[in-house]
Amino acid sequence: MVRIGIVTVSDRAHAGIYKDLGGPAIKDVLQEILTVPWTASMQLVPDEQQVIAQTLCRLADQEACALIVTTGGTGPALRDVTPEATVAACTKLLPGFGEMMRSVSLQQVPTAILSRQTAGIRGSSLIVNLPGKPAAIRDCLLAVFPAIPYCIDLIGGPRLETDPAIVKTFRPKAS
């Protein structure tokens, strides 16, 4: 069974001021995309860089999540520190993920240039930062997911398969 970490970064949702919509939105999109058995490790953390980084490391190192997807904390506000926490947790960065997500988001809103999503690798885990809005989560996840299964193959993770009617996974012919 493939393990996937889903991390919502939000002071207010963590404090119970409002309901977490981002984490469930990610889970819904993944249920639509993936055709392999998988289980989610849902996490809700405050906008604290050290807490976020520790959560990402635990999901990668102890829970062996092949994919860890975050939502929230990627903007320019003072408390938005998810990209910094991701960089601290990763051994390699994959800036193309952020570039693709910003490109897709710019087709919807001009403020997408303020987004700082990134992605990286820790061991055999791929960590991807998504925006906080559920509609943007779906658009961004669908935009980058064609490359995610092959990336996980390359870092020694489990083979992910997708519903080709929703996302066509790209793998070179020799894979």
Rank of each mutant, 00 (worst) to 15 (best):
V104E: 15
L106F: 03
T86P: 14
I121P: 13
R116Q: 08
Q117C: 14
L94G: 07
Q107T: 13
E99V: 15
K92H: 13
G120D: 14
L114F: 05
A112C: 06
G96E: 15
V87E: 15
N129W: 07
L106Q: 01
T91M: 11
L126F: 07
G132H: 04
G123Y: 07
R102V: 00
S115I: 06
T86K: 14
S103V: 05
R116M: 04
I121E: 12
N129C: 12
G96M: 12
L106T: 00
S115C: 07
A89K: 12
L106P: 00
L130P: 10
P95M: 08
T118N: 11
A89E: 12
S125Q: 09
K133S: 04
V128T: 07
A135D: 08
M101W: 00
F97T: 11
S115N: 10
S125M: 09
L93A: 09
T91E: 15
M100F: 01
P95E: 05
I127H: 06
A89T: 15
P95Y: 06
L114K: 04
A89N: 14
P134L: 02
T86A: 12
C90D: 09
A112Y: 00
F97R: 13
S124L: 00
K133Q: 05
K133D: 01
A89S: 15
Q108P: 06
A119S: 15
K92W: 12
L126D: 11
K133C: 01
S124Q: 08
A88D: 13
L126P: 12
R102L: 00
S115E: 05
R122V: 08
L126S: 10
P134A: 07
I127L: 14
V104H: 09
L94N: 09
G123W: 02
A136V: 03
G98T: 01
T111D: 08
T118G: 09
K92R: 15
L126E: 06
G132P: 00
S105M: 04
V128F: 05
T91W: 11
P95S: 08
T118H: 10
K133F: 03
S115P: 05
M101Q: 02
S105K: 03
A136K: 00
A112K: 03
A112F: 04
Q108A: 09
G123H: 05
F97D: 07
V128C: 02
A135Q: 06
V109H: 10
V128Y: 02
C90V: 13
T86H: 13
Q107G: 15
P95F: 06
V87Q: 14
S124V: 03
P110L: 07
S124R: 11
A136N: 05
A88C: 05
A88G: 09
Q108V: 11
V109I: 15
L126H: 09
L94H: 08
S105Y: 03
I113V: 13
F97Q: 04
T111L: 11
